[in-house]
């Protein structure tokens, strides 16, 4: 598994087995105490506790995925199972062994104690969702993704009646000249999902541009022109918001019957248990 294989799309090998890395280097403070040569557990399963519930998962699995397998929902915007974690949205912040850490970048380990559904963490997550709403231009009533949007769904989950922060209404450029894709930066939350998943000829179709408050998503028009209908649809589907749309196709389902209109985000995971 390449952890940082995004050297412009070229794969870099990792010589150290990942489970060993995660086993030994789970946090800066713990590193001090950990003996690097500690025997790796023969069994690949580890037990950990989330809000008092005992869970079991494959050692080294990222916490959000491991939790989902155990019927515990940890909200995410920038993560999908099987994707190299980005740790950029921070909505999955949990308290792990007493420290605030992102659930999508922290591998589970034996005996881990995790706080997930607590008033403090809910407040932090709601804060992040509200920040995202004011940082971009999210006009839900006019968005094709409304009802299927994960950001909006988290707004519903946390009953955001109004963000506590002032709206910034930043001017953002839309890109309509990228083949089958229409890129609306007004709605982008910079989750990097498209950067990590959409490739043509082994090259990245999406990348960031700029830094800090001026960071924005960028699309390679030459490469985007080569995307097939299927790839364009996949790009649209991987976008958690309505930033990547397939041209000439807005939506199939009317408002009222879409994914999150009736069912809270995460409810499908919580139902499993």
């Amino acid at each position: 598994m390449g952890l940082f294989n995004n050297l412009f799309g070229k794969k870099l090998p990792v010589e150290t087995p990942l489970d060993k890395v995660q086993d030994t280097v789970s946090s800066a403070k713990e590193v001090i105490k950990t003996d690097i040569q500690k025997e790796v557990n023969m069994s690949n399963k580890v037990k950990f506790i989330i809000d008092g519930k005992e869970c079991t998962a494959e050692k080294g699995m990222m916490l959000v995925d491991a939790a989902a397998e155990n019927g515990v929902y940890i909200p995410v915007l920038c993560h999908m199972k099987g994707m190299i974690p980005a740790g950029s949205c921070r909505v999955c912040t949990c308290k792990i062994n007493g420290r605030n850490m992102a659930g999508c970048t922290t591998p589970v380990d034996e005996g881990m104690k995790i706080e997930n559904d607590t008033p403090e963490l809910t407040e932090l997550r709601k804060t992040i969702v509200e920040v995202l709403f004011v940082e971009g231009n999210h006009f839900c009533p006019a968005c094709e993704k409304s009802g299927n949007c994960e950001l909006q769904a988290l707004g519903y989950k946390y009953q955001m009646m109004v963000p506590r922060f002032p709206y910034s209404f930043p001017p953002k450029a839309v890109e309509a000249g990228a083949g089958k894709i229409y890129l609306d930066r007004n709605r982008c939350i910079m989750c990097k999902k498209c950067i990590r998943t959409v490739h043509v000829d082994g090259k990245n179709v999406f990348a960031f541009r700029g830094r800090g408050a001026h960071l924005e998503i960028n699309i390679d028009k030459t490469l985007a022109a080569k995307l097939t209908d299927k790839q364009a649809q996949e790009a649209m589907d991987v976008c958690p918001v309505g930033s990547i749309l397939r041209k000439e196709k807005g939506f199939d389902e009317p408002i009222g019957t879409r994914k999150y209109d009736k069912h809270q985000i995460g409810s499908e995971i919580e139902k499993v248990s």
């Binding site: 231009n137 006009f139 839900c140 009533p141 006019a142 009646m161 109004v162 709206y167 209404f169 930043p170 001017p171 953002k172």
Partner: peptide, 19 residues
């Protein structure tokens, strides 16, 4: 009471914000 998206965040008329 702010009723609806336009009262709360400007709504569709606010699409002009930034222009």
């Amino acid at each position: 009471i702010s009723l609806g998206e336009c009262a709360i965040m400007g709504g569709l008329p606010a699409l002009r914000n930034g222009i």
